[in-house]
Design a protein around this nucleic acid. Sequence first.
RNA 1: CGGGGCGUAGCGCAGCCUGGUAGCGCACACGGUUCGGGACCGUGGAGUCGAAGGUUCAAAUCCUUUCGCCCCGACCA
Length: 557
Amino acid sequence: MRFSKMFIPTLREAPADAEAISHILMLRAGYVRQLASGLYIFLPLGWRVLGKINAILKEEMEAIGAQEISMPILHPAEIWQQTGRWNAIGDEMFRLKDRTDRDMCLGMTHEEIMTWLASREIRSYRDLPQIWYQIQTKLRDEARPKSGVLRTREFIMKDSYSFDASEESLEKNYRLHADAYHRIFERCGLKFMMVESDPGMMGGATSHEFMAPSPAGEDEVATCGSCGYSANVELALSSPVKNEPVDWALEEVHTPEKRTVQEVSNFLKLQPSYFIKSILLINNKGPVLALVRGDQEIHEKKLAKIIGDHRPARKEEVKEILGVEAGFIGPVGHKIRIVADSSLKEGMFVSGANKQHYHMKGIRAEREFSAEWADIHIAKSGDSCIKCGNPLNIERVIEIGNIFKLGTKYSSALKAFFLDENGQEKLIIMGSYGIGPARIAAAAIEQNNDKDGIIWPKSIAPFDVELLPLNMNDAKTVEVAEGLYKALKGKGVEVLMDDREERAGVKFKDADLIGIPTQIILGEKNLKEGLLEIKDRKTKESVRVKIEEAVEKLTRA
RNA sequence: CGGGGCGUAGCGCAGCCUGGUAGCGCACACGGUUCGGGACCGUGGAGUCGAAGGUUCAAAUCCUUUCGCCCCGACCA
């Protein structure tokens, strides 16, 4: 491709509303443009990158026997009503009516439609297993689109769905996908990890996410360097570092106007980890007192699994229910339901005395109070791994893929049955598996860039090499450039030739910005000696080679 | 949805507080010089100052409403 013929609108300055590195670089290097919040146009270079990624996705999906199909993105409401998600999902679903006033929606995912197809077409165990996949647009009215193409309202997703006759068979498809995903992300040149995740609204029991470490990510994962435990912080378990044992007599201590853990901790000169943080919550059955250690935060999702939907109690409610203002509440002497973090089981603690301006010191679990025990705190860096005890590390990550065992949630709702060997009607067992190509691209940039621009992994770069004839007014330069361009293309190398009448500096700057992994630099002086330069975008190292040897050298690597 | 910020030329910004002819840099067009890391000189084109309403002799500037975009949080198949 000739640079002069390709639309590559590079920017010297970044638009002010871009913050994430990948966003800034995609805009500056002319890969994307924003249409509106969460809506992006992929320009020629950007679209080529997505094409590269999609080609890898297709190869690896076909390799595990998945078959590509294409589903509509406009869906009738009925099917979503049958699975209950029409109501379960709120504003995130784009809804509309057709001209006959029929409710419709834009597909945010395709479990419903895939299952609908399976329910009509799959009759026998002989038809199973199946894996169907597509690379298709999804629409979600995101509450907050952000970070360029990392979180958008319209995006392309590779989504596949497995249909099996048994749990064992599902397990096999799940493994096949996990393995394929590993190969895909490896081929795309990403640093990534597979972690346990919360299936959430998807239903089903098991799910994993594929995460690319990057400060631009929205999720956090806890990983253990020694045993390999890794999980999304949404469900990661951990045990905090234990306190030095103490032996206090049970006593009330005067703590005037000291309400927060930090205030009391400073006042009594005791680490926050010696405190019990008590928070009064209200669920549909009434008040619940939740307890975590003073240095921990309550994990709302973990807690919700135990006590259901809840909200914090209002100030008046705290007084009414516990008889004391919020700063001095503690677990001792109440009859209400108490859920406590397991880390409070051992040791002695300080907590509110349920008496204005007093705290109680020397509290021991199952002596001064009893509770339902569970892990309800947010895992943090330095906590101990629950499997091996070594310290956990918490990292920010970009979610680039996920895999779910769905079970029969969708097949039962949509009556997707098959007849087994014994003529028995059974529900199809399903799995669903997603990958976001644009997120792969953004994660690749987040993980591979320098002050000059993008450094693409070879596998997903828009071109293999960029040819830089520095002076287009020099006959020799043009002749060699054209020759190389043809020769390389003839060998199947994808080459972008910067044939613009631009100064050398501009070409260098744009080449670095765009980030094609290899640059071939044609300068007059070198050409006179029969040489050219091959330069590596990542290392900035260049070697001078004979013109005749260039093609061979480039195609060998 | 809650909190914060910003809308002035394609991009980055100044001007707004204290109302009085809309500016700078880059980009763009033309001419000339230059030509291996975003050149220089000269000339030129380009703006409903996000929108609507109000105050005023006069509004980019003050007031009200509204729309859009970004960031933090909530939410997130």
